[in-house]
Design a protein around this nucleic acid. Structure first.
Lengths: 155, 155
DNA sequence: TATTAGATGATAATGATTATCAATAAATAG
DNA sequence: CTATTTATTGATAATCATTATCATCTAATA
């Protein structure tokens, strides 16, 4: 069976890049921390645990490379740092975020919500969609439940 | 008739802020350059034309204030700068972007594409949506037409 | 083995944004 | 009306994420 890392290796080779030990360590950190929306600094610290000799610049370079090859998505929640998410295989278009404006939590949705919307956009604006970003800002289920419990206590 | 700037003035007063000359100049620049996705630097240079004594820090402060009051949206297209868009009145949820990966153009869509999608998200994930960001990346109509013309020439 | 191109690590440079602080302006108290 | 407090501003220093530089190292090839 072909592992995820093997496939990434092939993608790099296809673009004539090598999977160096540093790049592999970086990819492994991303694989082990999916759904965590790590910043470059986060990745750096985690890689350092396994491979202390790695430099921050190399992590940045690797993340940039992976972004160019569309192996990771570089996303921005407006807090001043870029975050990097491994793409789910074959599911680039099924990955959205719910950002809670109360507690700051970021949840993910893995579901194609936009199929119909994309068809409209492509036709109406003659725009060939290659990718998209959809983020909702609001109040998450945890905060909603907390408020519901508080309201109950008041009665 | 109540002008747009009057309404913004009221919003500021409601939150006990004043519409100082510097703030007014900044808002006017935003009003006169809607759809342009100005960066803080852009706004600063435009304000300076009318009011040369204004400081960059004041522009940043004003934009931050307007963002907090949800008078403008602070958006990020991944090019390292934040951009500021005046909210269309009562249409916060009808404002999306098409970013062209070839020529870099950013077009706007003023249309509620997400009504159905939002209903699904609110119900299925118990998430109270307050706002959203939807951006499509792809190839714009201009580049599409250019390619079509080129293909025609080849024949 | 010598040579070359690619990659790395340390660190300096950059650039956007934020913090600081003295000077002003505006609001309020006396 | 003047004194006093408070908010706001402009200049600029500080911060922080990211990028560029450059000498060194590695791996592939001649």
């Amino acid at each position: 069976m072909e592992s995820r890392i093997d496939r990434i290796k092939k993608q790099l080779h296809g673009a004539s890049y090598k999977l160096t030990p540093q790049r592999e360590a970086t990819v492994r950190v991303l694989l082990e921390n999916e759904e965590d929306h790590l910043s470059a600094e986060d990745v750096y610290l985690l890689v350092k645990e396994k491979a202390p000799e790695i430099g921050l610049a190399t992590v940045y370079r690797t993340l940039e490379l992976l972004t160019e090859l569309k192996i990771v998505d570089k996303i921005n929640f407006g807090d001043g740092v870029s975050r990097y998410d491994l793409r789910q295989e074959g599911a680039a278009h099924f990955h959205h975020h719910l950002v809670c404006i109360e507690c700051g939590a970021v949840d993910e949705i893995q579901e194609d919500l936009l199929e119909d919307v994309e068809a409209v956009v492509e036709k109406r604006w003659n725009f060939q969609i290659k990718d998209h970003r959809l983020t909702f800002h609001g109040i998450c289920w945890r905060c909603n439940e907390k408020h519901a419990a508080e309201d109950k206590n008041k009665e």
